[in-house]
Amino acid sequence: MSSAPPPVRKVRGRSLGKIVGVGDFDGVRLHVVTGKGGTGKTTVAAALALALAARGRRALLLEVEGRQGIAQLFDSPPLPYEERKVAVAPAGGDVYALAVDPESALLEYLEMFAKIRHNGVAARSLRRLGAVDFATTIAPGMRDVLLTGKAMEATNRRDRGRHLYDAVVMDAPPTGRITRFLNVNTEVAGLAKMGPIRSQADRVMRLIGSPQTAVHIVTLLEEMPVQETVDGVAELEAAGLQVGSVIVNMVRDPLLPAADIAAVARGEVDSDAIRAGLKSADLDVPVELVDVLIAESVDHARRVELESQEREELIELGRPTYELPLLADEIDLGSLYNLAELLCEQGVG
């Protein structure tokens, strides 16, 4: 772990959508983080856990896709099936992490609900027969019930009458699969009209469909991730699930003066003036190079314009929207604190 977190980079003053004061998610205990592949969903989930653990609270970060992405982020060895403290949050709080693997979750489920000891004869012969494999990778819906069931258990767990975790953050499957993943009830309904799986699915659904659960969608200011976000919000709502916020990741600073963006995007740049400007800063460069530099700025301006169109679309969703900057270097623990701090400033936790 690195020592003191680096100084916080101020987020630009572009507030988006409705940003409600401090603690936008008071009352929410299970935070589900989804997003299209490549949007930095795991990083954002980790930053969110740090933000929600700030000031003496305790958060649990759950991983369900077996990638050990959390261990990599926190620079720790692969996580076992055991809640481990991975970081201390800003102003003294604790972040625990757990990689939920379906097999362990199944054995735990058996122990809790079928009174089958995880190291007993029955569990062993089930494993030998491939039943565990079957139930966790092949039996449809079962796997999701086990994974969401574990999140529910952690969310509801109490210690001396109080919730053990103030918040549980789940690094969930991507947007394209999230509704199906969370909507375990519908998933198993065709299979099990009654019985233990059905009861477990019902219990999970009571939490996931309640105001205690919010789904946050991570996106970039690019066409496909924004489209998936818009579709995802519609799907989640249709399934009766609560959409929490939209988190725009890897936002880049516009480097050109706002007033010049439109003209530059159209390629209207006075190259003689630019060259003269460069010269007065002691950069005497050939015309071709000035043209390359201008072409780069035209590219940049076009991207800024596209990004503001995408931003408009996100605003129309009417959700609390947060922005996180693109970091120049690779994500490390220091930058996670940085991102967590930015989330706090924008009203999370």
Binding site: L255, L256, P257, D260, V264, V269, A273, I274, A276, G277, L278, S280, A281, L283, L293, I294, E296, S297, H300
Partner: peptide, 16 residues
């Protein structure tokens, strides 16, 4: 406070 657009063009380049 001179040639602001040229300065911005240089920043874009540096970033890239």
């Amino acid at each position: 406070a001179e040639a602001p657009l040229a300065a911005a063009v240089l920043r874009v380049h540096s970033d890239r």
